[in-house]
């Protein structure tokens, strides 16, 4: 069992390494017209050369990678090219904002999806289950911006009860909450269906077991069967589902933050790409990719530990 966890951790480490190579290759290895992007078309060859030297763009590629990775590991994320602010300072606030958004979404979506998933599993193929199944098929297929636009049209334009953008947001707690409602709702729609369906599937898997039939025959109530008999054994897969969707949340925030002009990591990433701000782009991309990998890894380990058959598989 320990070897299994170690194996997954090793795989995770290799994945992170490959991810850092990809991020590096995708950005720094192809300088393109970074100098033009920063200095504009009018720049003299001298200023260009100075910039190339300052960024270390003249070193061989593999040296650049190790320099970059080394600095990154020491926590030195460099200066943002656009306004010479340390990347870490830009990250600080944005990271916090995205964390708040993700946390608020989790607080809403986890209990809700658990409740609906358990309800579906308690009455499988009943009227409620079938309608949730159809609705979730629709919800899963929709792009986030469609949900976002409809919410903005309804709540911000027609009823004007909530702000459509978050820019003016965070002066007070009340502002923060009002600014969070629509982004959180959009993200909730994006992952709720998936989580409900997977929770239901995990529960039904357990409820096929003979001991559930036994409980049924001895006359235990349905709620007792679901909550006391089945749920504890389905917890592992359910935690797996939650961790997987946390990973999804990381890339889901990009579009949602742009729709609502929410000052978080995702929006920062898009801005960095637009400005070709390499140090910023690398830092944000690597943080997001790493978080995603860690969550999927966690999901995988939990799934394996909670399933004896996987645990002892050779």
């Amino acid at each position: 069992m320990a070897s299994l966890v170690l194996g997954r951790l090793l795989l995770g480490a290799v994945t992170l390494l490959v991810a850092s190579l990809l991020v590096f290759a995708g950005t720094q290895a192809l300088p393109g017209d970074v100098t033009t992007a920063i200095l504009g078309n009018e720049a003299t060859p001298e200023t260009r050369a100075a910039l190339v030297e300052r960024l270390g763009l003249d070193h061989p590629i593999h040296v650049q990678y190790f320099e970059w990775a080394g600095r990154f590991l020491r926590g030195d994320l460099g200066l943002s090219l656009v306004n010479d602010v340390p990347v870490s300072r830009l990250l600080d606030l944005r990271l916090k904002n995205t964390f708040i958004l993700a946390l608020a979404t989790i607080i809403v979506v986890v209990p809700l999806s658990l409740f609906l998933g358990l309800l579906c599993a308690a009455y499988p193929n009943g009227r409620l289950d079938s309608s949730i199944s159809v609705v979730s098929l629709f919800l899963i297929s929709l792009p986030e911006f469609l949900v976002g636009i409809i919410l903005v049209l309804l709540f911000a334009v027609y009823w004007s009860v909530l702000p459509a953008t978050s820019i003016s947001g965070f002066r007070s707690f009340e502002h923060l909450v009002r600014a969070l409602v629509l982004p959180v709702l959009t993200l909730t729609f994006a992952i709720l269906a998936h989580m409900v369906r997977m929770t239901r599937a995990a529960m039904l898997e357990v409820m096929r077991a003979p001991y559930i039939e036994m409980a049924l025959l001895k006359g235990a109530s349905r709620s007792r069967i679901v909550l006391r008999h089945a749920l504890p054994n389905a917890l592992g897969p359910i935690i797996n589902v939650i961790a997987l969707n946390l990973g999804y949340l990381i890339s889901g925030v990009v579009v949602v933050e742009v729709i609502f002009a929410y000052p978080g990591l995702g929006k920062l990433l898009v801005e960095a790409i637009g400005n070709r701000d390499l140090p910023l782009l690398q830092a944000v991309a690597l943080i997001m990719v790493a978080a995603y990998i860690v969550f999927t890894l966690l999901a995988d380990i939990v799934a394996r530990l909670s399933n004896p058959r996987l645990r002892f598989k050779q």
């Binding site: 995770g12 994945t15 990381i250 890339s251 990009v254 990433l269 898009v270 997001m288 990719v289 995603y292």
Partner: peptide
């Protein structure tokens, strides 16, 4: 195990 949308970005 790479996030698809981020890789595309």
């Amino acid at each position: 195990s790479f996030p698809p949308k981020l890789i595309a970005l």
